[in-house]
Design a protein around this nucleic acid. Structure first.
Length: 425
RNA sequence: GGAGAGGUGGCCGAGUGGAUGAAGGCGACGGUUUGCUAAACCGUUGUACGGGGUCAAACCUGUACCCCGGGUUCGAAUCCCGGCCUCUCCGCCA
């Protein structure tokens, strides 16, 4: 949610934001409704003042005077009703439009239409050159008997999979390594509900834009969150925190559920785009201060990069363009990891900075040093998401004999095992 | 799933159809006292939106909010209806 006062002051800015982010919203209509709503609210308040004053008189009056006052009240009441109805007609329209307004991107964000227009910031690590014909992760998974896509599809349809044996262990090792890395940095580890109320989905900006990405458990009026960012960011919704307790640094591990609506036919091969996966996610809630927000953005990006370096995976960092930003974020850095089978870097992490966009929707506030109540800033980033990162890990670490070498950092989590070997026949 | 109880301010807890944004207590904050700490005493202590005021605050003022929505009434935290939520006991269960 954006601040309506800012929109009133500079509507063009929000028209442009909608345009460059490609998230349509009728700003003139919003202003129109806003004006009518303000007027109705003003009139209603005046009437209520009158109503209260007259009501207090009635208690003290007698006889004819009392009767007159009571008649006066019924006139006021009719008008109160009129403006109340006006407001309950306008408010839903206002809310509906407000939920669609995009937050303008920060300065320096490249303008573009899709992830193809993202701007590379840096590359880290070397892409190894293999002197044999490499397999892709699906072939490797089958040969090593650690990934079973067919049976995943049998159980749950396309974009599902089963990890088995060393594959499942590797997956868990990655997650545990990521959690430990964050614990070392002082983040608080959370376990959170992934089946959440609508308010939490709206509050974090996953509804209404993107609602079709979520699995809805309609009978219970709950939705499966697509990331732990959702419940974790909403953790302190409707609270007023003390500035001294900020920042809140959280890390959570969860399964993530995504319908991938609109992606039909896209990335259908392998473990890239799937309906469920596990992710370690970091969330920061900090004071309403641009400098601090920016510093934390760098911090959570570095946290993820540290894990990537520990895993010895070659990656690059890109500055996401306006079209790839989404409704809330003002700036987003993705980490893309080299994926040989795709012959490209593939998105594995996404670090978003949102100012108070989510905090306003969530009513997430704090009391600053002067006692003023302000909306927090929120940020989030992946630490590791698996099995997508397994694509890189398996394909990059494969050997000529068909085995896959486990990165040193992961071995303690794999009982010291150095390689995943093909099963003996 | 069955039976019952209940939802009031940061917390506990009172509450009558009008003077209650709401007693009292706790906590927190400010002050006095004190060698320091503690205690004691005094004071302050909700949020949102609007109007006035200010360079900006302070401050003044209006409205709404005692789970949510509707109703009765001149007037509702207080009465009625619907919903949501929480707790207790029993059953089932990872």
């Amino acid at each position: 949610m954006i601040d309506i006062k800012l929109l009133r002051a500079d509507p063009d800015k929000y028209v442009q934001a909608a345009e460059v982010k490609n998230i349509p919203v009728d700003i003139p209509a919003l202003l129109e409704v806003d004006g009518q709503l303000l007027e109705a609210q003003r009139r209603l308040q005046e009437l209520r003042t009158e109503q209260n004053r007259t009501g207090k008189q009635i208690a003290r009056l007698d006889g004819v005077e009392k009767q007159d006052a009571i008649e006066e009240m019924s006139r006021i009441k009719a008008q109160v009703r009129h403006f109340s109805e006006e407001i309950s007609r306008l408010k839903p329209k206002f809310d509906e439009l407000m939920l669609l307004v995009s937050q303008p991107p920060d300065e320096g964000v490249p303008v573009g239409h899709s992830d193809a227009d993202n701007v590379e910031i840096r590359r880290v690590g070397q892409v190894p050159r293999l002197d044999f014909e490499p397999l892709d992760h699906v072939q490797l998974g089958k040969a090593l008997d650690i990934i079973d896509i067919e049976r995943g599809v049998k159980l749950a349809g396309a974009r599902n999979y089963v990890l088995k044996g060393g594959g499942a262990l590797l997956h868990q090792a990655l997650l545990r390594l990521a959690v430990d890395a964050m614990l070392e940095k002082g983040y608080t580890f959370l376990t959170v509900p992934m089946l959440v109320r609508d308010g939490v989905m709206y509050g974090t900006g996953w509804f209404p834009v993107g609602r079709d990405q979520a699995y809805l458990v309609e009978r219970d009026q709950l939705s499966l969150a697509g990331t732990a960012e959702v419940p974790v960011t909403a953790l302190h919704a409707d609270e007023i925190l003390e500035e001294a307790e900020l920042p809140k640094r959280y890390v959570a591990l969860s399964t993530c559920f995504r319908r991938e609506a609109g992606a039909a036919g896209k990335d259908t091969y392998g473990l890239y785009r799937i309906h469920y996966f596990d992710k370690v996610e970091q969330v920061v809630v900090c004071p309403n201060d641009k400098q601090q927000s920016m510093a934390f953005h760098q911090e959570i990006l570095a946290n993820a990069e540290d894990v990537m370096k520990a895993l010895e995976l070659p990656y690059r960092v890109v500055n996401c363009c306006t079209g790839d930003l989404g409704q809330g974020p003002v700036e987003k850095f993705d980490i893309e990891t080299w994926m040989p089978s795709r012959n490209s870097y593939g998105e594995t992490h996404s670090a978003s900075r949102l100012y108070d966009f989510q905090a306003r929707r969530l009513n997430l506030r704090y009391r600053d040093a002067e006692g003023k109540i302000r909306f927090c800033h929120t940020l989030n980033n992946t630490v590791i998401a698996s099995p997508r990162v397994l694509i890189s890990l398996l394909e990059l670490n494969q050997n000529a004999d068909g085995s896959v070498t486990i990165p040193k950092a992961l071995r303690p989590y794999m009982g010291g095992v150095e390689k995943i070997e093909p099963p003996r026949k």
